[in-house]
Design a protein around this nucleic acid. Structure first.
Length: 568
RNA sequence: CGGGGCGUAGCGCAGCGGUAGCGCGCUUGGUUUGGGACCAAGAGGUCGCCAGUUCAAUCCUGGCCGCCCCGACCA
């Protein structure tokens, strides 16, 4: 393609609606165009990248045994009522009516229809294992679309589903997909990290996310500095540095006028926050639940919600706390058996704690687990932080922001039981199919790649997913010789299968062309100008390198091929 | 849905009672051409929508719609 013919042109100003790097650069480079919140047109440059990502995905999923299908986006709502997911998705589900008034949805994912396929075509244990996949547009009326393609309402996803006769076979398919995922990210040039993940509402067992580290990421993950342990913050567990045990001292009351916070207590009593027990009140599905945790730790709401099997969970306000007979700022489990208490494991890791006195302006000193209080449930609900130690090898943990670019999931029989997707086993008994599902957001993967690979001038594309491999810049194009030479180099690159964008604009200054090339960020830049032409040469450099090579025009194509071989 | 911000030319912004301006981009002509050139002449706007106040509304008031950011959700 020639820049003079390329649809759209670059923007010099940052569009005000974008403040995430990938969103900004994709708009400025003319890759995408917004139509409504979370809804985008892919322009030619983005679409070329998308197609490359899709090709890599198809190759790897096929290698793992996947078979491609194409399921409808438009689906009858009854299917979603049967599985209860109409409720589960709630307002996120785009729904509409057909001319006869029949309820329809624009599918946010495809387990229901996939199950219909399973129902019709899987009858015997001999029909499995299976991996079925598609690349299809999904619709989710997100509460808040954000950051361009990172979180859109209409987006393309590769979704795969495994069907197996038993857990062991599911494990094998799951493993195959995990390997395929690792290959996909590696081939896209993206170092995604596989982490243990929360399995969410659909009571699945095992689940992993693939996270691409990026400052603007929505997710936080915890990784071990020395072993393979890695988990989403919502799932992560850790050990804590052990405190030296001390003798249990006698419980004391202390007058603490107006001291209602952990930091306040630290200063007032000159104790470390590890010596304090923190009590927090939650409203859980309209009932109050009290939580107690060591003062240096925070409660992770997702972990707490999972323990309580809660649908809705939020902090209680001070009126709700008072109406439960508690005084905000002075709450503790000591003598407070009337309400439900959930304790974090950390409360057993020390002795002689400071805790609320359950009266205004009063705290207790030397509180000890079991002697002075108990809880209804003692569980792990602490949010892991960098002071934690790895549960596998006791090494320090690190926390890291990233973008979720893939999620794999053991579904079990959630759908097969609801939709009666059964098969006959070897004994002739009817069994529900064991399912798994595996997703990659394609547009998000592109955005995440840019999020991770850019500088102050623009995108720095990983070679395998760049719209073009080579950005050929012609300068001094009033000169017939330069036109002819750059034009023939352009032709010979394509003849050798090297995808090239040719900046053939005659009236644009060199600076404009260089800046546009930096913005679009293809891996290799080639310059042909009157100056290089004097010796029959061109200049070749990497987008992200400063060294420029002077190469004769006749050898340029071979030279570029070699360069590409080093980065693809 | 809660909190915050913003809707004026393709993009970025100014104007704030008297019907609109700047920079970039765009068009034409000319001079330029190795890191966002210059001169000249142009094109381009129901000032988000609907009511109200006023002799007069882009500007004031109210409502609605849209977009962005922070929180609960996810590929």
């Amino acid at each position: 393609m020639r820049v003079s013919r390329l649809l759209t042109h670059t923007m010099r100003n940052n569009p005000s609606e974008a403040d995430t790097p990938s969103h900004r650069y994709m708009l400025r480079a003319g890759m995408v165009m917004q139509i409504a919140s979370g809804i985008y047109t892919y322009l030619p440059l983005a679409w070329r990248s998308i197609k490359k990502i899709e090709t890599i995905i198809r190759e790897e999923i096929e290698m793992a045994g996947g078979q491609e299908v194409r399921m409808p986006v438009l689906q009858p709502i009854e299917l979603w009522e049967e599985t209860g997911r109409k409720q589960a998705f709630g307002d996120t589900l785009f729904s509409l009516k057909d001319r006869r008034g029949r309820g329809m949805v624009l599918a946010p994912t495809h387990e229901e229809v996939l199950s219909q396929i399973g129902k019709s075509y899987v009858q015997s244990y001999r029909d499995m294992p299976l991996i079925i996949y598609q690349i299809q547009t999904k619709f989710r009326d997100e509460p808040r679309p954000r950051a361009g393609l990172i979180r859109a309402r209409e987006f393309d996803m590769k979704d795969a589903y495994s069907l197996d006769v038993n857990e062991k076979s599911l494990d094998q398919n799951y493993q195959r997909m995990a390997i395929a995922y690792r290959n996909i990210y590696r081939r896209c040039g993206l170092p995604a990290i596989m982490v243990e993940a929360d399995s969410g509402a659909i009571g699945g067992k095992e689940s992993h996310e693939f996270i691409l580290p990026a400052a603007t990421g929505e997710d936080t993950i915890i990784t071990c500095s020395s072993c393979e342990y890695a988990a989403n913050l919502e799932k992560a567990v850790s050990n804590y540095p052990t405190l030296p045990p001390s003798e249990l001292l006698l419980l004391e009351e202390i007058h603490t006028p107006g001291v209602t916070t952990i930091s306040g207590l630290e200063k007032f009593l000159k104790v470390d926050r590890q010596q304090i027990l923190k009590s927090i009140l939650y409203m859980v599905d309209k009932g109050i639940v009290a939580v107690v945790i060591r003062g240096d730790l925070e409660v992770n709401d997702v972990k707490l919600g999972n323990v309580l099997m809660a649908k809705e969970l939020r902090l209680a306000d001070s009126a709700e706390i008072r109406s439960a007979g508690l005084i905000p700022g002075f709450v503790s489990p000591v003598g407070m058996t009337a309400i439900r208490w959930v304790g974090d494991n950390s409360i057993k890791l020390g002795q002689n704690y400071v805790a609320g006195g359950n009266k205004a302006d009063l705290h207790f000193k030397n509180i000890n687990w079991s002697r002075d209080f108990t809880v209804d449930q003692l569980v792990d609900i602490a949010e892991v932080n960098e002071s934690g130690l790895c549960v596998n090898c006791n090494s320090p943990l690190q926390s890291l922001k990233g973008i979720e670019v893939g999620h794999i999931f053991k579904l079990g029989t959630f759908f097969s039981e609801k939709l009666a997707v059964n098969f006959l086993d070897q004994e002739g008994k009817n069994q529900p199919v064991i399912m798994g599902c595996y997703g990659i957001g394609i547009g998000r993967l592109l955005a995440a790649a840019i999020e991770q690979n850019h500088d102050e001038k623009g995108i720095v594309f990983p070679a395998p997913i760049a719209p073009y491999s080579v950005h050929l810049v012609g300068l001094n194009l009033h000169d017939e010789d330069v036109i002819n030479s750059s034009d023939s180099l352009y032709g010979s690159l394509w003849e050798d299968g090297i995808e090239c964008l040719f900046d053939d604009r005659i009236d644009e200054s060199a600076g404009v062309k260089f800046n546009d090339a930096d913005l679009m960020g293809f891996p290799i830049r080639v310059i042909v100008s009157r100056r290089t032409m004097a010796n029959g040469n061109c200049e070749i450099k990497f987008r992200n390198g400063s060294d420029s090579n002077t190469v004769s025009l006749t050898e340029a194509t071979a030279f570029i091929k070699q360069m590409l071989a080093t980065i693809n």
